[in-house]
Simulated assay, not measured.
Amino acid sequence: MNLSLNWITLRVRDLEASLHFYHGILGLPIERQFESRGRQIVMLGAEGQPKIELIQGSDPALLPECGVSVGFETESLDSAIEELKSRGIPLARGPVSPNPHLRFFYVLDPDGFEVQIAEHS
């Protein structure tokens, strides 16, 4: 079996707040937005890459405390930290450097899910 990651689904309480975070602040492009079974759904991510699927709902299928996080790669961790701080997004943890080739930190999305920003050198 040959599999590739297609998307990760996050059930969010406030779709507009989540869109502001993932699209407006993190800069993920909106691939498409639609309604299915009465719920608003937005697929975000660059062409040819796995997507983040946001589904509007009042009760998340996973609670932020469940240990799920979403990770992104950046070319400059320091620039990412400054950009997020300038937009009022505080660091939740880090930056951490577990080895000489990796540095990362975490911020929280509007529902409290951890979002990891990493730089590999």
Results as ranks from 00 to 15, higher is better:
1 M>I: 13
11 R>W: 14
78 D>L: 13
14 D>A: 10
6 N>R: 14
82 E>S: 15
40 Q>T: 06
118 A>Q: 11
55 I>S: 03
86 S>G: 07
43 M>P: 00
79 S>R: 13
69 S>H: 15
94 G>K: 05
54 L>C: 02
67 G>F: 05
109 D>M: 04
75 E>R: 14
52 I>G: 06
52 I>P: 00
21 F>C: 07
116 Q>G: 00
113 F>T: 01
7 W>S: 14
87 R>C: 04
54 L>Y: 00
35 E>R: 07
19 L>T: 00
39 R>V: 08
5 L>F: 15
103 R>K: 12
72 F>R: 02
9 T>F: 04
68 V>M: 12
90 P>I: 12
12 V>D: 02
22 Y>D: 06
111 D>E: 06
88 G>K: 03
108 L>W: 06
33 Q>S: 13
35 E>K: 05
103 R>E: 05
96 V>H: 07
25 I>R: 04
110 P>R: 07
49 Q>T: 12
15 L>F: 10
38 G>P: 04
85 K>P: 02
68 V>C: 08
102 L>N: 07
50 P>K: 10
107 V>D: 00
87 R>L: 15
77 L>A: 08
49 Q>C: 11
2 N>T: 06
32 R>Y: 09
46 A>E: 15
48 G>S: 01
52 I>H: 01
109 D>L: 07
21 F>Q: 00
45 G>A: 07
46 A>F: 12
105 F>G: 08
115 V>E: 06
34 F>E: 15
90 P>S: 09
26 L>G: 03
56 Q>N: 08
87 R>H: 12
120 H>C: 02
119 E>G: 07
120 H>R: 11
13 R>V: 12
116 Q>L: 13
71 G>Y: 01
74 T>I: 11
119 E>K: 02
119 E>C: 03
88 G>E: 04
61 A>M: 12
41 I>K: 02
100 P>C: 03
73 E>Q: 13
27 G>H: 04
85 K>Q: 15
108 L>I: 03
98 P>K: 03
116 Q>I: 10
67 G>C: 05
79 S>W: 03
3 L>W: 09
98 P>V: 02
30 I>T: 10
74 T>C: 13
24 G>A: 09
45 G>D: 01
8 I>Q: 13
73 E>Y: 09
30 I>S: 04
111 D>A: 01
86 S>Q: 14
77 L>C: 11
93 R>K: 11
48 G>E: 02
29 P>W: 10
41 I>A: 04
20 H>L: 10
24 G>V: 05
57 G>T: 12
17 A>C: 06
70 V>D: 00
20 H>S: 11
26 L>C: 11
59 D>G: 00
48 G>N: 04
76 S>F: 10
11 R>D: 15
40 Q>E: 14
115 V>Q: 03
113 F>Q: 03
12 V>H: 02
31 E>M: 09
41 I>M: 08
65 E>D: 12
9 T>P: 01
112 G>D: 06
94 G>H: 01
66 C>T: 14
79 S>M: 08
21 F>K: 01
9 T>M: 08
